[in-house]
Design a protein around this nucleic acid. Structure first.
Length: 602
RNA sequence: GGAGGCGUGGUGUAGCUGGUCUAACAUACCUGCCUGUCACGCAGGAGAUCGCGGGUUCGAAUCCCGUCGCUUCCGCCA
């Protein structure tokens, strides 16, 4: 029978414990065997402490300690002592003390681990995921998971204090059209029928408003069968919120309060509210993105006016065809080689730009700032100085110019801006720059389906003043959508919903949905709306991304205990796996063999 | 579906203009020595047919083709 643990090792930093007998338990980190004395780093979730085994004072414990290996689980008792002068380790909180062991018990031996249990580990991520239990033992991963926990507590406490009710909604739901691909679950008792896992609780939260809950929230698990990214997993968590009798600003203010609360509780910092707000059109114009990273400048400048009558065909034609000429200024890059500029050109080409024109700013013999470019000979002096003046480029800067359609110029320059921002180290990593993006377009044209689709979802309310554009120029219609952006990452998205039957019908019509189709697809929601639907709106915040940014990580996999790889598999459990013939039969499913895809059980 | 990067002892890397590579280094691991270390030190040892398959060649970790896995990005993600 092991001795009962009296302290977590982190608590021993408290000097009041010096001289006290303690019982600790945890994992063996490094062992330093000096032949006589043995030191080990004992680790638990609260930190590490050094335990000393002395062969003269406790030979029994010392002889067991001689055989300790990494990651063995032990129970130790001993006295907390102040370290001799000159042996203090200032890099750990418990560095002023030792625990002099008088008793040691090995509770569990460990095989040699496949990687070190240490901070800032650099190993293949599959290996980390295959041995996730060891990876999660590492202090930085423990911090991430604990931070995530503290965030969930902060969110629940705040929303509870604001009068919100957390309601769980079903995981097995009816597949609805539009949006991402569904993950699907067969129904054994209904042969040939399938449930879908929710992409979000969207319809249920709106129905809860009809039910009169007024303020709903949920830390909701969502599922989308789309390709993965550093910030996208097939299952993820969102802070799902819906409120009745509110307008847009009520929701923005609530979320600002929520974020400020979380930042204060979890990071101990003060966040200033309200957050800046920017229309979609303005974000695109200035940053070439609907999720701008506003922690640094280098904004896009429209130089169309300066070069619209230029002798340079590339500029003149782009503008003549309804496009634009845009520029950004890369500070102190005028000495970029042709090779380096080529590299930047590859960035914009990836996003459809035909090419990239660069112009270096230097000073001539008279001390005037002049632009030099590979296309200087096509441009007049007035145009060159106009470009310098409009962009505000200074001596030593490099002006980077793209000409073409508006979409391509803005997007490619926006991407180039981000590329340069990180390359030139212009982004203050510590800053948290929230911004609201509003007034998104209501519809966009889907080339694939050759019809209008909703930018957000079909229940999003148009801006009232744009309502009558719906039949004439729907693509110019704006919706009451708002996105929350943090440091260039889309954190959340929401809208005021349609609660009027006639408006909903006009939107369905614009989307090319007949009355029967609408009834077939969303009939239960439309029916619910006929029994007294309050005006309502809401938002969903990507909780994994929020935790990632709060933890200062580059991927949400680092704040998810058991994430999947880019091919959506779990290296630890081997999911997804095969089903036995028996299971398949019971589910009324047959797997069509395509080459190597098998049906055998594992 | 597409583009880039990576794949060499347990781990992280070097080697990759073909030939003492019979694969190097660090660390982890094993053995021995060591009573104030804290990435302990010192000495010794074991451990990889270089992701997999094929091709070129007298000869392939190295060149070519294919394939698999991981990763970043594009498409996709109402």
């Amino acid at each position: 029978m092991q001795k009962k643990r009296t302290h977590m090792v982190g608590e021993l930093a408290d000097e009041a414990l010096i001289g006290k007998e303690v019982v600790l338990a945890g994992w063996v980190g490094r062992r330093r065997d000096l032949g006589g004395l043995i030191f080990i780093d004992l680790r638990d979730r609260s930190g590490i402490v050094q335990v000393v085994f002395n062969p003269e004072t406790s030979p029994a414990a010392h002889s067991i300690a001689e055989k300790l290996g990494s990651e063995d689980v032990i129970s130790v008792s001993g006295v907390v002592v102040e370290r001799p002068p000159g042996t203090v380790n200032p890099s750990i909180p418990t560095g002023k003390i030792d625990v002099v062991a008088d008793f040691l018990e090995v509770l569990s031996k460990s095989k040699t681990p496949p990687f070190y249990i240490t901070e800032n580990l650099d190993v293949d991520e599959v290996l980390r995921l295959r041995y996730r239990y060891l990876d999660l033992r590492r202090p930085d991963m423990q911090r991430n998971i604990i931070l995530r926990h503290r965030l969930t507590m902060a969110v629940r406490n705040y929303l509870d204090s604001e009068g919100f009710i957390e309601v769980e909604t079903p995981m097995f739901i009816k597949s609805t059209p539009e949006g991402a691909r569904d993950y699907v679950v067969p129904s054994r008792v209904n042969p040939g029928k399938f449930f879908a896992l929710p992409q979000s609780p969207q319809i249920f939260k709106q129905i809860l408003m009809v039910s009169g809950f007024d303020k709903y929230f949920q830390l909701a698990r969502c599922f989308r069968d789309e390709d993965l990214r550093a910030d996208r997993q097939p299952e993820f968590t969102q802070i799902d919120i819906e409120m009745s009798f509110v307008d847009r600003d009520d929701i923005l203010a609530l979320i600002e309060g929520l974020m400020a609360h979380c930042v204060k509780e979890v990071l101990g910092k003060q966040l200033s509210t309200p957050f800046p707000r920017m229309s979609y059109a303005e974000a695109m114009k200035r940053y070439g993105s609907d999720k701008p990273d506003i922690r640094f400048g280098m904004e896009i400048v429209d130089i169309s006016d300066v070069v619209k009558d230029s002798g340079f065909g590339v500029f003149r034609n782009a503008i003549g065809e309804g496009g634009m000429v845009g520029a950004i200024v890369a500070p102190s890059c005028s000495d970029y080689s042709r090779q380096q500029v080529k590299e930047l050109e590859n960035v914009v080409k990836e996003f459809g730009a035909a090419g990239l024109i660069s112009a270096a700013v230097s000073r001539n013999e008279e001390g005037e700032e002049i632009l030099t470019s590979q296309v200087s000979k096509f441009l007049t002096d007035a145009e060159l100085s106009g470009i310098a003046r409009t962009t505000g480029a200074k001596e030593g800067d490099l002006v980077l110019i793209v000409a073409g359609s508006q979409d391509i110029v803005l997007e490619s320059l926006g991407r180039l801006r981000l590329h340069l921002g990180s390359k030139l180290d212009l982004i203050p990593e510590e800053e948290m720059a929230f911004v609201w993006i509003t007034e998104f377009p209501m519809f966009e044209f889907s080339q694939e389906e050759q019809r209008l689709v909703a930018v957000h979802h079909p229940f999003t309310s148009p801006l009232e003043e744009d309502m009558d554009l719906i039949e004439t120029e729907p693509l110019n219609m704006r919706a009451n959508i708002y996105d929350l952006v943090l440091n260039g990452v889309e954190l959340g998205s929401g809208s005021i919903r349609i609660h009027r039957r006639d408006v909903q019908e006009r939107v369905f019509t614009a989307l090319g949905l007949s009355e029967e189709e609408a009834k077939e697809k969303f009939g239960f929601l439309l029916e619910a709306f006929e029994y007294g639907a309050p005006p309502h709106g809401g938002i969903a915040i990507g909780f994994d991304r929020m935790a990632m940014l709060f933890a200062g990580r580059k991927t949400i996999r680092d704040v998810i205990a058991f994430p999947k790889t880019q091919k959506a598999v779990c290296p630890m459990t081997g999911a997804p796996g095969n089903l036995s013939e028996e299971q398949l039969k019971e589910l009324h499913i047959r797997v069509v063999n395509m080459g190597k895809i098998g049906t055998s059980s594992d």
